[in-house]
Design a protein around this nucleic acid. Structure first.
Length: 460
RNA sequence: UCCUCGAUAGCUCAAUGGUAGAGCAACCGGCUGUUAACCGGUAGGUUACAGGUUCGAGCCCUGUUCGAGGAGCCA
């Protein structure tokens, strides 16, 4: 009689029943007349137990010799047993039949420790490992939460081009590709096109891969990453920040609700995420610079400014890393220091106009700062959102394009948008992998992408 | 582009300038509750590459390649 084929994450609903799993062997522990097989099927992992007396000699010996990652169908009775390891765990299969689909070749990734180069060379296999599996499941939840939140609030998903004729903010960081007899560049943002889209649809977002040819070699950078960019008509910077904090909170809370097992696998301290809810604190660039100067002085004087939880700052080995004067952009150490002052993500608003993109609206009466806001994730994870209110006046926009030394022709259509019913409008871009890295509490962004592209890595 | 560190068995790592070693994986044997099981045994090496110093180099020197971490820039 055929038994039902079920997923490991559905085991709890089949206690006492005979079911079939289609799975791979994650690990095994043979113990003489008893074998523990740990099976994974993409939805979870569970222990399957074989007793020698239940099988003929050949079947039992074959099972005992199975290499890691062999593919199997296993039929048995589901039992609740608190001793059973796995994800979600607590259930095991008392094996009645086992069929080997393929006996795996010797599998390179053992349950022991490995170096990062080896693991990256074997990324196509590494994604099967518990930690990577959990991370990428969280990533999928993050992407789903992004879409469902925006779709539920009147945002229309609009695809923006990946092949673009020129840069929004200079071409040095762009990948150049041949385009018949011409050149094209891989998009580093869909924002400008989204600004056209809002005049047709009101609120839109684009969601796709983004490319940066930066020669960055840090734990925060990929050359190809996914970014969601909402853009909203009739929206100023203050309204934008409210949207951002609700959006980010929704993403975090969705992962907490749906990926508890994954976060446990990752050993993530969820108490650092549970309280993520609006409102997020706001600090102006002016105040942030003053705070950084104070923090640097504190470190040097031996009377350091403490973190939000009362502990000393971490990750600032040398106070000189906090060097800053008004007008400078923040580096990673500045972000690391600032984010430790707060348990929630923090908005830094009003950056100097000179260090930001040409399209950002200056503050009335104070044109040296603009209506921009970065959102910095806690625990030193850094910038996950960059956003701003865009210039709505055509003359001012043209002026800013000239000041940046950009050619006017490619931006003709962009200026055009301000001539036909211009309105205050704002938008932001959220980096998916950085968000996943923060939520998962992971060291390096490369683990937040299934097949990360890094400055020195395109294989596999 | 710059700074720092690294490269030894399939993997993770040891080895005062003096015979190249362990754990895991593989292979053989044992074990009915393991959680990276454990116990016994077998096999496994062009010490990244090129040159130099030395009686003798995995180790010291020079260069190259590759990798890791960080800076700048950014999400």
């Amino acid at each position: 009689m055929a038994t039902p084929i079920i997923s490991i994450n559905d085991l709890h609903a089949h206690v006492g029943q005979t079911v079939t799993l289609q799975a791979w062997l994650y690990d095994k522990t043979p113990k003489g007349k008893l074998i523990f097989l740990q099976a994974r099927d993409g939805t979870g992992r569970c222990q399957c137990v074989m007793f020698k007396g239940d099988f003929d000699e050949a079947t039992f010996e074959a099972a005992k010799a199975l290499p890691q990652e062999s593919s199997l169908t296993i039929t048995g009775v589901v039992k609740a047993d608190p001793r059973a390891p796995g994800v979600p765990g607590g259930f095991e299969l008392g094996v009645k039949e086992i069929a080997i689909v393929q006996t795996s070749a010797e599998y390179p990734i053992t349950p022991k420790e490995h170096g990062i180069e080896f693991l990256m060379d074997n990324r196509h296999l590494w994604i099967r490992s518990a930690r990577q599996w959990a991370l990428l499941r969280v990533r999928a939840t993050v992407m789903r939460a992004i879409r469902s939140w925006l779709d539920g609030r009147g945002f229309l998903e609009m695809s923006t081009p990946i092949l673009t004729p020129s840069a929004a903010e200079g071409t040095t960081n762009l990948f150049e590709v041949g385009y018949f007899d011409d050149k094209a560049y891989l998009a580093q943002t869909g924002q400008l096109y989204n600004e056209a889209n809002i005049f047709a649809f009101g609120r839109v977002y684009c969601f796709g891969p983004t490319f940066r040819a930066e020669k960055s070699k840090t734990r925060r950078h990929l050359t190809e990453f996914w970014m969601v960019e909402p853009e909203i008509a009739f929206c100023d910077l203050d309204q934008l920040l409210e949207i951002e904090e609700q959006f980010v909170s929704h993403i975090v809370q969705t992962v907490l609700r749906e990926n508890a097992n994954e976060l446990k696998t990752l050993d993530r301290d969820v108490s650092k995420l549970a309280h993520i809810a609006p409102p997020f604190p706001r600090i102006t660039y002016d105040d942030a610079v003053a705070k950084l100067i104070e923090m640097q002085a504190g470190l040097r004087a031996g009377t350091p400014v403490l973190r939000h939880d009362g502990k000393p700052l971490e990750g600032i080995e040398d106070p000189a890393l906090l060097d800053i004067t008004w007008g400078m952009d923040f580096g990673a150490p500045h972000e690391t220091a600032l984010t430790q002052l707060c348990a929630k993500p923090v908005f830094v608003t009003g950056f100097p106009t000179a260090i930001k993109a040409f399209y950002m609206e200056p503050y009335p009466g104070r044109p040296e700062v603009c209506k921009s806001a970065d959102l910095l994730a806690p625990e030193g994870y850094g910038e996950i959102i960059g956003g701003s209110e865009r210039i709505s006046d055509p003359a001012r926009l043209e002026e800013r394009i000239r000041e940046h030394g950009l050619p006017m022709d490619p931006y003709r259509w962009y200026v055009d948008l301000r001539k036909y019913g211009s309105v205050p409008h704002s938008g932001f871009g959220l980096g998916v992998e950085r968000t996943v890295t923060w939520i998962c509490g992971t060291e390096h962004i490369r683990e937040a992408s299934p097949f990360p592209r890094l400055i020195n890595r395109m294989y596999p």
